[in-house]
């Protein structure tokens, strides 16, 4: 990896985080665009976690004894009932490493 590539990645990330914090930015996001962007978080975050849970070492794993799957179900239940990120994460990870 070249330093230039690294800096380009850093610049893209920083610009996307900063751009709307700049008061001089003349662009205004219309209500439809904002409404569409509203779904970015759930869509992108799910598209990152789902393959981790169901696709390992090049194979689709939909088995009920898949430790990722079992722990993800526990994380889901804990996340919905407790709404506490630490509790959901720590307990589901502990379970994951026990059954893995």
């Amino acid at each position: 990896m070249s330093w230039l590539t690294l800096l380009a990645m850093a610049a893209l990330v920083f610009i996307s985080r900063y751009i709307f914090l700049e008061p001089k930015l003349p662009i205004r996001l219309g209500p439809k665009i904002l409404h569409f962007l509203h779904y970015t978080g759930p869509a992108v975050l799910t598209a990152i976690w789902a393959p981790i849970v169901f696709h390992q070492n090049g194979e689709l794993n939909l088995e009920i004894n898949n430790p990722y799957f079992i722990a993800a179900i526990v994380a889901t239940i804990l996340a919905i009932t407790t709404r506490n990120v630490l509790i959901s994460t720590v307990f589901s990870m502990a379970l994951f490493f026990m059954i893995k």
Binding site: L45, T46, I48, W49, I52, V53, Y68, A71, A72, A75, T76, L78, A79, N84, V85, S88, T89, S92, M93, F96
Partner: peptide, 9 residues
């Protein structure tokens, strides 16, 4: 799995 767990949460 920590990534998955955090994003699920």
């Amino acid at each position: 799995f920590a990534v998955a767990a955090t994003f699920i949460a």
